[in-house]
Design a protein around this nucleic acid. Structure first.
Lengths: 221, 221
DNA sequence: GTTGAATAATGAACATGCTCAGTATTTAGC
DNA sequence: GCTAAATACTGAGCATGTTCATTATTCAAC
């Protein structure tokens, strides 16, 4: 089935409106049941039933069960990225800029930890589903937004002139990805706690491990 | 079923020997079929059949299908960690020590990318299986070994005196975890390529992003 | 409005992960 | 060696993810 991201200009048409309506119902049903019962115990039959569609219809909208999770999150994640990176203050230190952005993610995940756990644990490197490509595009976009912060920080002489911004952005993303999963895996996962941990790791990354003044043997090789 | 890690002293006994034999056959069968067909297309029935055991027996040795992957890897991962961190030369720069250790992982994963992909993609944050606890113990051990390298580097004045070794080890582990998955997700994943990428990220982490001499506005706040 | 083509919805049927009551094997006490 | 208890093995049966041939709906041309 073709699922179109409708542009604002063309008139929807009955078919498109019905499809969008079903999509919303499926999203809502999946969200509810995953939250209530967890990933495994939320059956596709129950989701289809609550959405008021046939079982087969579910698989016209999601390639498989895991895709249902993307179906819930994909739009939200894009909006989240927009808000998160729009909120940073360029004049603040890079660490604070990054924390300001990532704090949005921690708060969003903290608002529904069961659902977040499913997203972060079940789907880390999922790549075979129909919507997986969208998810990876979204992730690349996030890395790109991090890179922009670093490029600007470099322009402002907050980071070294010769830093590879792409590599630095990837590092930051990996640190965030690891930290947020480390955090969400625990039972009582308060966002503030996770953000503090992330701050520590990113702080290390920005400051570096080596001694600042060239005493000791740090500069060997 | 009780699966004992037999100590070297007590005589095995027929029952224990049979169990170990079945375990080995199941491990071999799972390894073969996962490699030949991939995770989803290797059915538990096929694995049981090739191992020469009943279907139900499989689930006496692994809690569920995902646990079969741990069953294959868990011992190897422990040995791998031993070899990897035993191979580092304390006199080398910290970056080279870390790369020397992680290169073992890249080479091991590179030797069977299909299997490695299953381990790294399917099971990243799996925590509900019977053997998952072992896996997490193994991961914590790895982080601990990284931490030891960092503590020694700190003693040798290769890293700053006031570095939080635990936090630094976690950072390094997250960078490795991200990089190795980034690498294995690609089609032609040659270890050397992945190691070079990791070196870049860890190099950044050790050197830091900020300018070394306090010119520019780097030291604000 | 009618009609044929295009598209979407559906659930019966199938494939497969997993359980568990029943059976077989091993052990320990004598 | 016999016996009973303990332990391990087994596959039929169930639950659930997924497919796909069939049916229903919408659209476009006239």
């Amino acid at each position: 089935m073709k699922i179109s991201r409708n542009s604002a200009l063309d008139v929807p048409g009955l078919r498109e409106r019905n499809k969008l309506d079903k999509l919303r119902r499926i999203q809502a049903a999946a969200r509810q049941l995953f939250t209530e019962r967890g990933y495994d115990r939320a059956t596709t039959r129950a989701i289809a039933r609550r959405a008021g569609v046939g079982l087969g219809t579910l698989f016209n909208y999601a390639g498989d069960k895991r895709d249902l999770v993307f179906l819930i999150f994909i739009e939200e994640l894009d909006h989240l990225a927009d808000r998160a990176f729009a909120s940073v203050d360029r004049r603040a230190p890079l660490l604070e800029q990054l924390i300001a952005a990532f704090a949005h993610y921690y708060r969003a995940f903290g608002a529904n930890t069961r659902l977040a756990r499913i997203l972060l644990q079940e789907l880390t490197f999922y790549s075979s589903g129909r919507l997986a490509a969208d998810f990876q595009r979204s992730r690349r976009r996030t890395v790109g937004l991090i890179e922009r912060l670093i490029v600007r920080a470099r322009q402002d002489h907050r980071v070294r002139r010769n830093i590879d911004a792409a590599a630095a952005a990837l590092s930051v993303f990996f640190l965030y990805a690891g930290a947020v999963r480390w955090w969400i895996a625990r039972d009582r996962s308060r966002p503030a706690r996770g953000i503090a941990e992330l701050r520590k790791l990113l702080g290390l990354h920005i400051a570096g491990l080596v001694p600042r003044s060239p005493r000791g043997r740090a500069s060997r090789r």
